[in-house]
Design a binder for these strands. Structure first.
Lengths: 118, 118
DNA sequence: ACTAGTGTACTATGTAAATATAACACTAGT
DNA sequence: ACTAGTGTTATATTTACATAGTACACTAGT
């Protein structure tokens, strides 16, 4: 995985894991690879990975059993809320951004339509 | 102005100024408020403001005359290219983000359509 | 009991961003 | 010449992020 220079790595890793969860790559209750395994995979320090895990747990997205591993939350409603929240965030930043560039709703609509080739 | 905690402040200021330029709040050739004035207005350190200015000049968006002030580029093509670049960036991050959440183009289209109330 | 694999915690180090503060260099108006 | 207002540069300090390295605590399988 390639990291953006501006945003903290641990946040980018959190987003990646969240994406895997909402898309079903990681299903409800699934075990997540260990801190050590993932820090090797992402080529980051173990502490950075640990921080991502801690934050995800604090947000209720995953839960941890010491000595065993970390798992995706069993609570389906948390997952659907997460997906909702992530898409809402994307939409808002896009619409607000276009507004900030001086495009009105109609123009934004035409532009995105063209971009999606629909 | 309220700053995001994740992105560096000087980048956020650069975006704000760029926005003012592409929307015409700051027109081609306009004088920009001084480093000191803007650092007071945005409530940031002068060095932070200076860094935003340096970067903007390096990117050709503004130019500086020592002892006089900084000005928006006279080159209209730079401005239009800037607008193009900024909207493209917004669109890409939105479309890629939605794709990452598991929405296909059609779904993305319907969602944004609803969000724009069109 | 032992061992391997988990999560967790701690110290130390390096780097980038932002700050406070001060000084320097140039320009225009008086 | 002087002054006020520009951009510019420099030093020191604080904070957050990431890293390296080490050690501890817990669990399951043997």
């Amino acid at each position: 995985m390639q990291f953006n220079t501006t945003a903290p790595i641990y946040l980018q890793i959190m987003d990646k894991i969240k994406n895997d969860i909402v898309t079903g790559v990681l299903a409800r209750g699934d075990r997540i690879d260990s801190v050590r395994a993932l820090s090797a995979k992402f080529e980051v320090n173990m502490n950075t990975m640990q921080r991502a895990f801690s934050e995800l747990e604090r947000q209720g997205v995953i839960f941890t059993q010491r000595g065993i591993g970390s798992f995706v939350t069993e609570d389906e409603s948390v997952i659907s809320a997460l997906k909702e929240e992530m898409s809402t965030k994307l939409i808002e930043s896009f619409v607000c951004g276009m507004e900030g560039l001086g495009y009105n709703k109609n123009e934004t609509f035409q532009i995105i339509r063209k971009a999606l080739e629909i």
